[in-house]
């Protein structure tokens, strides 16, 4: 019974997303994400995108997790590495000098 209820609610949701005015499906939402985050969505598409976020728990939570992942990656890479030194090894400097001497 449970899975039937789930199935039916998804079926109804899918129908609503396809037929409500100014509403997009989750698949279309997925395609808009990158432009939304870069601010290059058209005004109308942006409204549809934001309407879908309000309406759809799955996409709302997915988007949050997606943004958190980007942030995690950024911060993790920007934390100082233990072994990458600020100073260039002297032998590398020498090697470059040797090759670049005319």
């Amino acid at each position: 019974m449970d899975s039937f209820l789930v199935w039916i609610s998804r079926f109804i949701k899918g129908k609503m997303m396809r037929h409500m005015p100014n509403m997009i499906t989750c698949v279309e939402f997925e395609e808009f994400i990158i432009d939304y985050l870069e601010g290059t969505l058209s005004q109308t598409d942006q409204l549809k995108f934001e309407k879908h976020i309000r309406f759809c728990r799955e996409c709302r939570e997915y988007l949050t997790a997606y943004q958190h992942s980007i942030e995690l990656g950024r911060i993790a890479f920007k934390l100082p590495d233990d072994p990458v030194p600020e100073d260039v090894p002297e032998d590398l400097v020498k090697a470059i000098l040797e090759v670049t001497r005319r």
């Binding site: 998804r10 079926f11 949701k13 899918g14 129908k15 997303m17 396809r18 499906t25 989750c26 698949v27 279309e28 939402f29 997925e30 759809c56 728990r57 799955e58 996409c59 939570e61 997915y62 949050t64 997790a65 958190h68 942030e71 995690l72 911060i75 993790a76 934390l79």
Partner: peptide, 29 residues
């Protein structure tokens, strides 16, 4: 990401999500 036959997203509910800052406090993250 996965979508069903109705073009709806399948996403397990998130009751809680850790912020990046909190996560990076953990060892070796």
């Amino acid at each position: 990401p996965v979508f069903d036959a109705n073009d709806c997203r399948i996403e397990r509910p998130w009751h809680d999500i850790e912020t990046p800052e909190k996560i990076l406090l953990r060892a070796n993250m």
